[in-house]
């Protein structure tokens, strides 16, 4: 209900404020008088928008309070609001898949589809939940974690390209780099699960 009301006020406020500001052009004759009429309209629109924003943020107070320790205090572990364990599981699965491909690499060429599967099956589900993760972890931790995950993803993309182009040495090197980044991401997540390690 709060979300619907906030959205409605935001739309109405935007329209009213836009209409108010639409009449503030100094090149029009009598613009000073028009401004006296239209600035109050614009101000009313802005008030509606501010109310919408206040409603929206007040709705977030509970989760924000719950996850207060998640923000930017490096020593505090994140709250249980987000399933960090699931992230750890997905990252571990991706790393293990890469290890398997690295071991197979010596025997046969790695098929590009197998590399793509690691991204779509293990990394994408985490990436798609990034907005919730950002809200829970706070900007700094989110950037640390997702910066490393995105690098791993880019190395996997490079391994895919090299596999398509037929460069096995590059496939191997890129997979190793992707695994290294995923291990960094895992270390980061694990440090948050054990209080006081960071």
């Amino acid at each position: 209900m709060r979300t619907v009301l906030s959205g409605f006020l935001l739309v109405v406020g935007t329209v009213v404020a836009t209409l108010g500001f639409a009449r503030t052009d100094p090149k029009e004759p009598g613009w000073r008088q028009k401004i006296q009429i239209h600035y109050p309209v614009a101000a009313a629109g802005l008030v509606l928008m501010l109310t919408a924003i206040a409603l929206r943020y007040s709705g977030r107070v509970a989760p924000a309070d719950r996850g207060r320790n998640d923000s930017d205090d490096p020593a505090a572990p994140p709250s249980t609001g987000i399933d960090i364990g699931a992230i750890r599981q997905a990252l571990s699965a991706a790393r293990d898949q890469i290890r398997t491909l690295e071991q197979e690499e010596g025997e046969t060429a790695v098929p590009p589809a197998a590399i793509e599967r690691i991204v779509t099956a293990h990394l994408m589900p985490i990436i798609e939940r990034r907005h919730q993760i950002l809200e829970q972890l706070g900007g700094r931790r989110f950037a640390e974690l997702f910066g490393v995950i995105a690098e791993a993803e880019r190395w996997l993309n490079r391994a895919w390209s090299a596999a398509v182009d037929g460069y096995p040495a590059e496939v191997n090197r890129s997979l190793a780099n992707a695994r290294r980044d995923l291990e960094s991401a895992l270390a980061l997540v694990e440090s948050w699960l054990v209080p006081g390690t960071r």
Binding site: D72, L134, G139, R140, R141, F142, A143, E144, G147
Partner: peptide, 10 residues
């Protein structure tokens, strides 16, 4: 800014 700071540190 908070996440951008993290990205710049990266």
């Amino acid at each position: 800014l908070p996440s951008m700071g993290g990205a710049l540190r990266g």
